[in-house]
Amino acid sequence: RNRTTFTSYQLEELEKVFQKTHYPDVYAREQLAMRTDLTEARVQVWFQNRRAKWRK
């Protein structure tokens, strides 16, 4: 699989949710996936990576 390149809009939306919660539930991830036109799996992985970056 190729690396996903996120648009500025997608990143904005993802970051907005990340500010509210670092662990969005499956419903929140589904909503976000629909809004950003990404798969729920991509959203889930983005949050995993974002949490790792945040911990550093």
Rank of each mutant, 00 (worst) to 15 (best):
R1W: 06
R1D: 15
R1M: 05
N2W: 02
N2Y: 10
N2D: 11
N2C: 03
R3G: 13
R3V: 04
T5I: 11
T5M: 15
T5R: 06
T5P: 08
F6E: 06
F6Y: 15
F6T: 05
F6C: 06
F6N: 04
F6V: 11
T7A: 07
T7N: 09
T7K: 08
T7C: 05
T7M: 09
T7P: 04
T7Y: 07
T7S: 09
S8F: 08
Y9R: 12
Y9F: 12
Y9S: 14
Y9W: 07
Q10R: 02
Q10V: 03
Q10P: 00
L11C: 07
L11V: 13
E12A: 11
E12Q: 08
E13N: 06
E13W: 04
L14V: 02
L14N: 02
L14Y: 00
E15Q: 04
E15Y: 01
E15G: 01
E15D: 03
K16D: 06
K16G: 08
V17F: 13
V17R: 02
V17P: 00
V17G: 07
V17Y: 10
V17K: 05
F18K: 01
F18V: 04
Q19C: 09
Q19H: 11
Q19I: 08
K20G: 07
K20C: 07
T21V: 08
T21K: 03
T21L: 04
H22V: 06
H22R: 07
Y23T: 09
P24A: 02
P24R: 00
P24S: 00
P24K: 00
P24C: 00
V26D: 10
V26A: 15
V26R: 10
V26C: 06
V26I: 11
Y27Q: 10
Y27A: 15
Y27V: 13
Y27D: 14
Y27R: 13
A28V: 12
A28C: 11
A28T: 08
E30V: 05
Q31N: 14
Q31H: 07
L32R: 01
L32F: 03
L32H: 03
L32I: 09
L32D: 01
M34K: 14
M34R: 15
M34D: 06
M34L: 12
R35A: 09
R35V: 07
T36Y: 07
T36I: 12
T36F: 09
D37W: 05
D37V: 07
D37H: 11
D37I: 04
L38Q: 03
L38Y: 00
T39L: 03
E40A: 09
E40Y: 03
E40R: 08
E40T: 14
A41W: 06
A41T: 14
R42S: 13
R42D: 15
V43A: 02
V43I: 14
V43Y: 03
V43D: 01
V43M: 06
Q44L: 12
Q44S: 13
Q44A: 12
V45T: 13
V45L: 14
V45D: 15
V45I: 13
W46E: 02
W46R: 01
W46C: 01
W46A: 00
F47N: 01
F47W: 02
F47Q: 00
F47V: 01
F47D: 01
F47E: 00
Q48E: 13
Q48S: 12
N49E: 14
N49H: 14
N49F: 05
N49D: 10
R50T: 05
R51D: 01
R51M: 06
R51I: 08
R51A: 01
R51E: 04
R51G: 02
R51S: 02
R51N: 06
A52H: 04
A52W: 05
A52G: 08
K53Y: 08
K53F: 09
K53P: 06
W54H: 15
W54G: 13
R55I: 06
R55M: 06
K56C: 01
K56Y: 10
K56I: 07
K56R: 07
K56F: 06
